[in-house]
């Protein structure tokens, strides 16, 4: 059976699949960096946003940070298992990582429900809420996308197939965690 070219070719000393993943991370740095940079400069220029920021739920943000950090641990343990050739164990840890993603989204869902339905803050309420929903929403889309891909990777890993992908999806997942590490103080702590 032929292998994907990303698995077999390496022009830089880095497997092409992993290299492609790092390029994705590079592009994500530019995307999220631009968004968060814009938020920071607007937040400094608009002290009145502090009156909106006090309504974000710090505890929900902290719990979600804990959930993502834990899911990152699961992802790196999956990678470690894959390196040892233990696909079943790798898949198990990937499923735990997906569970973390689901928990994150459920908490986010409750949080947004309260903010939108109970408090009435929507995307157009103010500049702060626009940034809040766009930044957290874009991050949430990455969580959903990562979790779906992880299920496919876990499905193959369980059969001992394409174990190198466990590392690739792990790198992506750690980056999603990294973005949240910065979103948390910006949106929840800086009141």
């Amino acid at each position: 059976m032929s292998r994907p070219i990303a698995t077999t070719r390496s022009a830089t000393g880095i497997p092409t699949g992993r290299l492609a993943l790092w390029w994705i991370v590079f592009s994500e740095i530019v995307i999220f960096g631009g968004l968060l940079g814009s938020y920071i400069m607007h937040r400094i220029g608009h002290p009145e946003w502090a009156y909106d920021a006090i309504h974000t739920n710090t505890m929900a943000g902290a719990v979600n940070t804990f959930v993502l950090l834990t899911s990152s641990l699961m992802a790196v343990l999956a990678h470690q298992a894959a390196e040892r050739g233990d696909g079943k164990r790798a898949a198990k840890f990937l499923y735990w990582t997906v569970l973390g993603a689901v928990a994150f989204l459920v908490i986010k869902g409750f949080e947004w429900h309260h903010e939108i339905v109970d408090l009435g803050y929507v995307l157009t309420t103010s500049g702060f809420w626009s940034f809040y929903y766009i930044a957290a929403g874009l991050h949430g889309v990455h969580v959903i996308g990562g979790a779906i891909i992880m299920l496919f990777v876990a499905h193959d890993a369980k059969k001992g197939k394409e174990l190198q992908r466990v590392e690739y999806i792990g790198i992506y997942w750690h980056f999603v965690d990294l973005v949240w590490i910065f979103l948390f103080p910006l949106l929840y702590i800086a009141k």
Binding site: T12, W22, W23, V30, V76, G170, H174, D177, F182
Partner: peptide
Amino acid sequence: AALVANRFMHLNIERKYITSLLITGIAAM
């Protein structure tokens, strides 16, 4: 972020090319 990048993403033992790539992204930002 440094802990996650170095210890979970293994950036500390990744090729320098990758570190340079990521620094370029941060510089653009």
